[in-house]
């Protein structure tokens, strides 16, 4: 396959950055998207240029490290997968592909396509945990959890914290991420005792990091590689309202 790449290049966090054009020739259609970038980078290095910097790690869709906004959609327009799971056979010979970083004020660009997502870590540090050791996996019947709650918690826990929700949101809101992380713990007996404190702390940290506010357009749920539903945002709104009222009157 022969492709034209329009890639965001930015030397450092303060550089203005620009779109640069690369011709990617003879790319095998069975290559993954990141392998395609590897091939392009090898050729850039051979000619003495600076390779395109991008985040990647497991390359099997479970670590949440890869990012990239491909033709305006985080992780590409393919539903329910990460960038590393996208294959070049999904594109056509001769296509022009726009590759940009995940854009948000709370995700400052480090270099080229690499962004700093440590704002997510600070939200988790604010309340996305259980304060006491809950022990090893125990006998299934010793701590009953309803099937519905278990499924909802598991769906929320599927979040890999990649940040595609923020990148797709017109307001760069982190509500899907925070909603998923809070719901995952709030739904289970181990997480319930700290539910109110957790929701207030995580939402306040989210606001302090400079993420935008949800306007219920659900772009996040469409691009989430783990297909997490915007239901978790509704739940976060509900849990926050309850916690705020309890805080005010207690």
């Amino acid at each position: 396959m022969n492709l034209t790449l329009k890639v965001w290049r930015q030397k450092n966090p303060t550089d203005h950055g620009r779109i640069e054009t690369y011709e990617a020739r003879d790319i095998p259609s069975e290559a993954s998207f990141l392998e395609m970038l590897d091939i392009v980078n090898e050729r850039i290095i051979e000619t003495g240029g600076e390779p395109i910097h991008f985040d990647h790690d497991c390359r099997e869709g479970i670590c949440g490290t890869c990012s990239l906004t491909i033709n305006g959609v985080p992780h590409s327009k393919e539903r329910g997968i990460t960038t590393c799971q996208v294959h070049m056979r999904k594109f056509r010979d001769g296509d022009t592909i726009w590759i940009e970083p995940f854009r948000a004020k709370a995700f400052p660009i480090v270099r080229d396509l690499v962004v700093d997502r440590s704002s997510f870590d600070r939200i988790i540090a604010a309340g996305g945990y259980i304060s006491v050791r809950t022990g090893s996996a125990q006998d299934a019947n010793s701590l009953p959890v309803g099937k519905v709650e278990a499924d909802e918690a598991f769906d929320a826990a599927a979040c890999i914290g990649c940040g595609a929700c923020v990148a797709s949101c017109k307001n760069a809101s982190a509500m899907l991420f925070v909603g998923a992380k809070a719901a995952h713990l709030n739904l289970l007996p181990q997480g319930k005792p700290e539910k109110d404190r957790r929701v207030l702390a995580m939402v306040r940290q989210m606001d302090a990091e400079g993420f935008g506010n949800c306007t219920n357009q659900y772009e996040c749920e469409a691009v989430c590689p783990k297909s997490i539903s915007a239901d978790v945002i509704g739940k976060l709104n509900r849990d926050f309202a309850q916690a705020a009222v309890k805080e005010a009157v207690s």
Partner: peptide, 29 residues
């Protein structure tokens, strides 16, 4: 006040802008 924050939160726009499922009405609120 929320809209001002939202504009600040997405301070850089995509060169290739795309929308997956947000309705037109939701984007001109």
């Amino acid at each position: 006040s929320l809209t001002i924050e939202n504009r600040a939160a997405r301070n850089a726009r995509y060169a290739y802008d795309n929308t997956v499922q947000a309705s037109k009405s939701s984007r001109i609120m």
